[in-house]
């Protein structure tokens, strides 16, 4: 490799400089398509949201509101907005309960699938568990909305109970159920794929050492799943912060609090109350909060290992 560059170094200075210049631009040239799209669809909107969040509405009398520069007013308002702060608490509660349950179920399913040697059964269940994820979350919400209906729900008809799954007290858990139903299969596939990458020699070695099936699972498979599990957990934490469709689709069916998740609250601030600037500030705060949360999680996982 190095001897190939030697002749270049021996050449006359002017073409060398030209070449060096070209070398410097080459990566940018190849990066340009990505950077253009990245700037247009990521950096620019984020920048615009930041800019927008600095404005407030000024009113006088009955006329339309004026946009005026307000500095950090919207951010100060957000930290005093008990509805918004509560929405963060709602989603934290949701996360603490739903994410571990879902990952536990996904891991169990992945291990079972990995253990099933029958090709057809394996393929069938893999597809079956994954299917819910292929439904758009709006459709899933509508379907579950019907299953949750107080008088028509098959659960209530079978059990003879009159459980109102949409009652405001248990609504968050009902939504958790929909999310779990949708995403368990998805996470299972990630974990299952990770298990497929485990070299066969490891299992052979364990077998020779006299490991039982349980030992194999506990001391070989689970530790090897750790990186994939961490990844799934991070994605789930980020995904949880973004929950919107499920509660939103359930709104026409009964009372769903405006602030059941941060995103529904943010959406209503913008779409219903027309306060785009405050919505932008909330979105920025939510992004920062998600960033901190996933960073915190990653740090604690890495610290352990």
């Amino acid at each position: 490799m190095t001897d190939l560059s030697l002749p270049t170094a021996l050449q006359a200075p002017s073409p060398r400089r030209k070449k060096a210049l070209a070398n410097r631009f080459t990566p940018w040239f190849f990066l340009a398509p990505f950077l253009t799209v990245f700037a247009a669809f990521f950096v620019a909107p984020v920048g615009y949201a930041l800019y927008l969040s600095l404005f407030i509405k000024k009113r006088g009398g009955f006329g339309p509101a004026r946009q005026a520069f307000g500095g950090l007013t919207n951010y100060v308002r957000a930290f005093q907005d008990s509805e918004f702060l509560q929405s963060l608490l709602h989603i934290l509660l949701f996360m603490v309960i739903q994410v571990p349950l879902m990952l536990l179920a996904a891991t169990a399913l992945a291990l079972i699938l990995d253990g099933v040697k029958n090709g057809f059964a394996g393929r069938f269940f893999r597809t079956a568990f994954y299917l819910p994820y292929t439904l758009p979350s709006v459709i899933a919400g509508l379907l579950w909305g019907y299953l949750y209906s107080k008088n028509l729900s098959p659960f209530n008809q079978i059990t003879g109970l009159k459980t109102d799954f949409l009652a405001s007290g248990i609504l968050l858990f009902s939504i958790g159920n929909i999310v779990t139903w949708t995403w368990t299969g998805y996470n299972m596939i990630t974990l299952y794929a990770a298990l497929q990458n485990v070299p066969g020699e490891l299992y052979e070695a364990a077998r020779i050492d006299g490991a039982s099936n349980w030992d194999l699972t506990r001391y070989v498979k689970l530790p090897l799943l750790r990186p994939a599990l961490t990844l799934s957990a991070i994605f789930s934490v980020i995904g949880t912060m973004q929950i919107f469709s499920e509660p939103f689709v359930l709104r026409p069916l009964g009372y769903v609090p405006d602030n059941i998740t941060p995103n529904t609250y943010l959406y209503l601030v913008v779409a219903r109350d027309g306060n785009f600037s405050y919505g932008a500030a909330l979105a920025v705060l939510l992004a920062v909060f998600t960033f901190i949360l996933s960073g915190f999680f990653l740090r604690s996982v890495q610290g352990e290992s």
Partner: peptide, 12 residues
């Protein structure tokens, strides 16, 4: 107190 325009209401 059935919710308006829901399957529950029309059914009832």
């Amino acid at each position: 107190t059935l919710q308006a325009f829901t399957a529950d209401y029309w059914n009832a």
